[in-house]
């Protein structure tokens, strides 16, 4: 017997989409396989690695632990939606400059977790940064250059505002 399908409508990276999805599809599957937004990665499928992190209504979540059906009516941002017409997101720039990217498989997830943090907090402490990315496993960098890159993005944003 076929899977039941569900109609969902939501906003992803500022674009409205409407589609029919299998009822048991994960949000990750919907993004990667049905919308070809392959920037979001699957590293474990069970919430243990953070590679699939996306931002839903301003909050970082594991898209592997969310049903696609639960995306209905939501505002979703994926790594593809971070850059704007005017250029890369500051976090993306700092990750590049700060050598926070090695193999890059964890990078989209780390970017989305830190993006959600920076949207929520003006000037997060180092401890808050660590807390925000503790659900993102990176096997390459040892995190140090990731943390400094996030810190630089924060401090440059503050400098920009104070100028």
């Amino acid at each position: 017997m076929d899977k039941e399908s569900v109609r969902i409508e939501f906003t992803v990276n500022n674009k409205e989409v409407a589609l029919d999805i299998p009822a048991d599809a994960t949000a990750l599957h919907v993004l990667r396989e049905m919308l070809s937004l392959t920037g979001t990665k699957e590293g474990c499928g069970i919430g243990e690695c953070g590679a699939c992190t996306i931002v839903v209504d301003g909050k970082a979540v594991n898209s592997c632990l969310m049903l696609g059906a639960q995306l209905d009516g939501r505002m979703v941002t994926t790594v593809e939606g971070l850059a704007t017409e005017s250029g890369l997101h500051p976090l993306q720039e700092k990750f590049m400059e700060g050598h926070a990217v090695q193999c890059g498989f964890c990078t989209p997830g780390l970017l989305m977790s830190s993006h959600a943090l920076l949207e929520e907090k003006e000037n997060p402490t180092r401890a808050e940064i660590e807390k925000a990315i503790a659900g993102n496993i990176c096997r390459c960098t040892g995190y140090q250059q990731v943390i400094t890159s996030i810190e630089t993005a924060v401090s440059e944003r503050l400098d920009g505002e104070n100028r």
Binding site: R32, L37, T38, G39, T40, K41, E42, T78, V79, E80, L82, A83, L88, Q92, E93, F95, M96, E97, H99, V101, G104, F105, T107, P108, L111
Partner: peptide
Amino acid sequence: VPRSCSKAKVTGEIKFAAD
């Protein structure tokens, strides 16, 4: 110097095998 592919990695454009 900036690492190769790092831009495509931070934008999510880069294709890993599963992509």
